[in-house]
């Protein structure tokens, strides 16, 4: 942590003390400690901890540890199984990018369902990070796309355009957020602190790719289909009233695994990789294929390229 950051943290602590928040919180915690029932005590302390949890980037390493442990307790109570919440940082010399071969995509939407399972999206409200558009040949006007195509695919005279978060280098959503609840990580992935988001949905209005989804109600994930390997900034279960989005499966790709959507794709249309690695497949594609990006006129600089053979 830089000196400036730690100084910022100290000023904030002092401010909190002045406002009596810390004092109030401490006395409440002390009062809770006096309760004999261990479980009640934990619940009260955890609830208070949740209500007054600080911004993720302001947490000290110790506080991150406490926060993750509190979340694991919360999820265990809710889903009756052990859930691991990690907070792995970005890898050095890494900038993630994605390329998608439109000639290979056949509209099976296996990526969509794999994503939902991997990222613990609410099954009840059917949140999906990837939308596959079925577009008639000869146009790129998205208004001609069918979002809800059914029946056998691929349909003749149509092509398929999967759209998810484009992980813009110049993300309008980050600029829009009034409380800095969303930001770009050093590996280029735009993430959300679900515990800091106030649910104003201004980022959703700002996103030109319709990549951000809101939890309109309490998310429902059947315990048996819960992915218990989670990350604070990606697939841990969310609560109602907060935004979520594709993180390129941050919890997987930071461990050298592929994003779930690429792993699930049966046609090999998807190529994920490190843009800073000159030997990566994605770099080969960017150098050798005629690639394009969606809505380049908006100057968002997506790290998601499309191409065709």
């Amino acid at each position: 942590m830089s000196e400036k950051q730690s100084r910022k943290q100290i000023t904030r602590r002092r401010l909190l003390q002045v406002l009596g928040l810390t004092a109030g919180g401490a006395s409440l915690t002390a009062a809770a400690n006096k309760l004999t029932d261990e479980n009640t005590r934990r619940t009260i302390v955890d609830t208070l901890g949740g209500l007054f949890q600080n911004h993720f980037s302001r947490l000290s390493p110790d506080e991150v540890g406490e926060t993750l442990a509190r979340m694991e307790r919360k999820y265990k109570e809710k889903y009756k199984q052990d859930v691991r919440v990690e907070a792995t940082s970005a890898l050095p010399n890494t900038l993630f990018g994605y390329a998608l071969n439109l000639s290979r995509c056949r509209g099976y939407r296996d990526c969509v369902s794999a994503c939902v399972e991997e990222n613990n999206q609410s099954r009840d409200s059917e949140i999906q990070y990837i939308r596959v558009l079925e577009i008639p040949d000869g146009t790129m006007n998205l208004e001609h796309a069918d979002h809800y195509y059914a029946g056998e695919v691929p349909k003749p005279d149509h092509f398929y355009l999967p759209v998810q978060c484009q992980q813009c280098e110049n993300p309008p959503c980050v600029k829009a957020c009034p409380v800095e609840a969303t930001w770009q990580e050093p590996d280029g992935i735009v993430v959300i602190d679900y515990d800091w988001c106030i649910g104003c949905r201004y980022c959703q209005a700002a996103c030109p790719y319709w990549a951000r989804k809101f939890n309109w109600n309490e998310p429902v994930i059947p315990a048996e289909s819960l992915n218990t390997q989670t990350h604070y900034l990606s697939n841990r279960p969310r609560e109602k009233g907060v935004m979520e989005k594709c993180t390129f499966c941050l919890h997987r790709v930071r461990k050298q695994q592929l994003p779930a959507c690429q792993e699930a794709c049966p046609t090999g249309a998807r190529v994920f990789g490190n843009l800073l690695d000159p030997d990566s497949e994605i770099r080969y594609i960017l150098a050798n294929k005629k690639v394009f990006r969606l809505k380049e006129d908006l100057n968002t600089e997506p790290k998601f390229w499309y191409y065709a053979d």
Binding site: L51, P178, V179, E180, C197, R201, Y202, F214, G241
Partner: peptide, 27 residues
Amino acid sequence: VDLGQPLRFWHMIPFVGRLNWPQSMLA
């Protein structure tokens, strides 16, 4: 009333919370 998490309104208070000013027009 439009907020999904109204109890977190304090996140908008400068210093205590984290107001994204001058970036965000909502800020």
